[in-house]
Amino acid sequence: MNSETAGKSLAYEKPKLINDNKFHFCPGCNYGIIIRLIASVLEEMKLTDKTIGLVSAGCYVQTPWYMDVDFVAALHGRAPAVATGIRRVHPDAFMFCMQGDGDLGAIGMGHFMNAMMRGERWTTIFLNNACYGQTRGQMAPTTLLGMRTTTTQDGRDAEKTGYPLHVAELAATMKGVVYAARCCVNTPANYAKAKKMLKTAFQKQLDGPGMSILELLSACPSNWGLPPKEALAFLTENMIAEYPLGEYKNVEPKIDV
């Protein structure tokens, strides 16, 4: 279908790296946009031949079925540890590590902190949808105060569950981290910003040691109980207010002693 018929040329189709499997994500889920964003940057930066992607437990664990690069799926929370093992064996591989908010911020926090402490060289793509999507919407470390989930049915209450976790800011404090930023794909403009940040993050990994992290806020219509359009509006009004977009760290990747 993408052959150029008379009088018109192709302006946009999904990246070649994305195969023809239908996405299983819920209608309006931002993950479908995000994995194509990743694929398009991998293609533009000519990284696909040496890419090893990591996914962990969450809706995005299906990404290997849609994106034709090497993938390893890690047990819930363990992706930073699995990636450490891969990185030692393949120092020249290009690696990105997709993790959700429960995966990275709850069960995997110890592994994530220590990977940052070790200055592990890969790009963490942190998908923040403020709930456990795959398990149908429980509270996650990044659930907003007052936000209803299946385990905070009267709205998240700080007294019982503490406060939302800010990963990009946290990562920026770690010496082993050379780039930490947050964006989202809720508007075409933010899509463009996210793409620019992802390119920067990927370039850091090519330039030298240290972890680069891009946190992407992502709407989860099914578990937020909102139709896709309103889920995006919720993200714009509430998520961005709690999780300001922007670059929190951007230093030259080198051993800094």
Binding site: M1, N2, L10, A11, Y12, E13, K14, I18, K22, F23, F25, P27, G28, C29, N30, Y31, G32, I33, R36, L37, S40, V185, P188, Y191, P228
Partner: peptide
């Protein structure tokens, strides 16, 4: 690029 399911070709 904003279609979550890559359904649209332009």
């Amino acid at each position: 690029f904003m279609c979550p399911d890559a359904a649209i070709v332009v």
